[in-house]
Design a protein around this nucleic acid. Sequence first.
DNA 1: ACGGCTTGCACT
DNA 2: TAGTGCAAG
Length: 705
Amino acid sequence: MPLARPESLDSRIIAHIDMDCFYVQVEQRKQPHLRGLPTAVVQYNEWKGGALIAVSYEARKFGVKRSMRGDEAKQVCPQIQLVQVPVARGKADLNAYRNAGSEVVSILARKGRCERASIDEVYLDLTDSAEAMLKESPPHSLESIDAEALKSHVLGLKNENGHDAKEKVREWLCRSDTDHREKLLACGAIIVAELRMQVLKATEFTCSAGIAHNKMLAKLTSGMNKPAQQTVVPFSSVKALLDSLPIKKMKQLGGKLGTSLQNDLGVNTVGGLLQFSEEKLQDRYGINTGTWLWNIARGINGEEVQVRLLPKSHGSGKSFPGPRALKTIVSVQHWINQLGDELSERLCFDLEQNKRMAHTLTLHASAYKLSDSDSHKKFPSKSCPLRYGTAKIQEDAFNLFQAGLREYLGSCGVKIQGSNHNGWGITALSVSASKIVAVPSGTCSIMKYFQGQYPSHSSSKQTPDTFIQESAPLSSSGFMSGTESYSELKSAEPQSDYNFPCLDLQGQKISESRDKDSFCSSPKQAKDGFALETSQPTSQPLPSGGESCSAVNQSNSRGCFFRDDTRVILPKLEQQEQKRNALEDKGTILKFFKKSNPSCSKPKLENVGVVQELNLGLEANEVELPKESLLLAECSTNDCRHSLSQNVHREAWHYKIDEIDPSVIDELPQEIQDEVRSWLRPRKRPNTVKQGLTIAHYFPPTKAT
DNA sequence: ACGGCTTGCACT
DNA sequence: TAGTGCAAG
């Protein structure tokens, strides 16, 4: 596979920024008296003092570890401060941390291409900034170098801990007798030091960073000197670093793949991989993983920093371990309602803040089955098109659950014995929303022109009907894929071969969903109690089309504004992102393509107007609009002040990507170039694995140029 | 009786 | 596609 290796062009400057024990910092900011004290954040506390999910560095000195219980932590560190994760709707509520993460992102994103890698980590591509700095004010020209930059750890630099360490670093940063690449790296280190200070100033959070020529190395080293420090990886230090690096320390190799490398290949360090040919690695682990392994052994990693400031999915879940397993349909429904409520709130928030909508709802569960042959079967996850509105999400999720349960129990069926012992138990539930796309509004991503383009569209185009069906089902009419239709599911009757003792409870949906029916519901209304009231009007088996949304409109929803405790000023975040991807003049890109590439397929104008009227759950009917006109989502609660309601014109353009003449791209504005290039980038090769593990993996874009 | 809860991604 | 499984923190 003589693919061109990316190393020659790897003079990019990549940083990985990693917040130090983030949840702890968030809590310490809220309660400043905790600063400096051994502190941990725990989730729940009934059972053995709760589970630690973050531990301060002070506490780590005592041997406190994540994944201890609160009680254990108290044993090894009696003075430890345990702070509880907020609880809402009977489950952990991580919103404060998500929001705090967004604050950080909004600062870091100012300086370069930024990818939010998790709630508390980002990657930055600082190549351009570093180049600019080198040109305009290179380190050696600076009269003084910032103290934070001087505290950098430079791998391979001698005398790391000597008292003249800072002088050494200064020397290194200001070297002029080195190649361009190293100079850029020095600039990157200075820029990152500055960014970290900005983050600290603006958010009071400290972070650590790795600065290197690719993502893998940046990630690898950001954690090497914590907290509040940064590590630089000069090219010259890479080999030594990897040679002795335990293989499990490498991202992606911490699990089964890493174990297999140890056990099956006898490789214990990353450098140990060098002895294997690429073909050998491919034979065993597949084309992509094999090449990836071959590359990382050499410090090569071509993954690009993606521009993404926002999450691609939202989920809300809870586990019910052991004795707490849910054993009745009603209790399952209760929790699905809680989870659905939270999810809906977050979706609403996302819509308002980011003008994005999710299109798929998925329900996951874990279950056990008593005394049956194949009791090891997994509870299947199920998904369906996502309809906005709390009640709809709850209802759809519940139906997905029932579909899953039926399949899980199988036709062998587990007999029902009274209401409380069905022979099954649910040990975890989660609902999630995915396929989130920017809603075209005002300025919008050019992606929207290609939206609805699924991979195979060269051959067939999606008919408006399918499109509508897929993106916005009309109530309960046949949106389930496969053999069972949604309506079948809903009408599952007790007389089927096995019984759902509680199915008829569908008609008596638990009351908690009342008042929360709305699209934007108040988060704090959830009762933790578990009152069972009957007579819910919302839930009679719904006549198709006519949703019973009587309860919907009266919701006193407060809307879903940012309601974090303290500061919170991030709303502009996503606008930034959208701007980045934005195309002021919708016609621009099309003009480019049209003009310069007459061969490209004529854009087809589809009349795929799909509307979800989000009028607070007023029947969210989907309407097929006249061509080109698309009524947008409206989130018009009393308090959802930013009404998105507006009419937009939208043309659905279909292009075949491979018909785009590459030479045209250079003429495009930079941001568009980036986006278009990402479509054209060589894809991963289809995995024609002979055998062996099929392990999730990363892969370097096989480079050209 | 489990670390819980989230995410992202590859694969089929 | 929907569904599964791995990995990370």
